[in-house]
Amino acid sequence: MIARYDAVVRGSGQLAAVLRPLRAEHRAHLAQLRSRLIVPPAAAARSAAASEERSAAAAEERSAAASPSPAAAAAPALDGASGRGSSDAGSGSASHGEPADVPAGRAAAISFLQGAERAAAATLLRKLPAVSPSLAQLMASVAASEATHVAALAAAGGTA
């Protein structure tokens, strides 16, 4: 999601002020979901390396804030997957690498984000039965936030 927002802002700077608060919320989602990543037992011996990876990921996120283009590429999979590593969670072709091409025009770009928000929320809700109570609470809350983003984007010129 973060990568998608970055891509839209790159294509239409006029939307930056509208999109920045929503993107910030996605960053908060990502931070919370990442904090609940479960390290498989086999990886326990590599905890030091994992720790380094997390540090690197955090550094990537910091750089993403300053320079949006490359660093957020990993975000959709993590955001949508809720720390479970599912490849379908990022809603569509943006699970790996750059997000799909952003359609031209303000309304189309906003609709693009609305579709991504809906898909991400739906993915989280589908996963609810299989996760722990505390993770279910977080995922449901994130899905609810994403649903409110759809309405916020509609107010910015998308479709209701």
Partner: peptide
């Protein structure tokens, strides 16, 4: 919008960026 509907303010650390 808010980042974490249902969670009391401050219950979760929220990133800004």
């Amino acid at each position: 919008t808010v980042a974490f509907p249902g969670f009391p303010a401050g219950a979760l650390h929220t990133a800004r960026g």
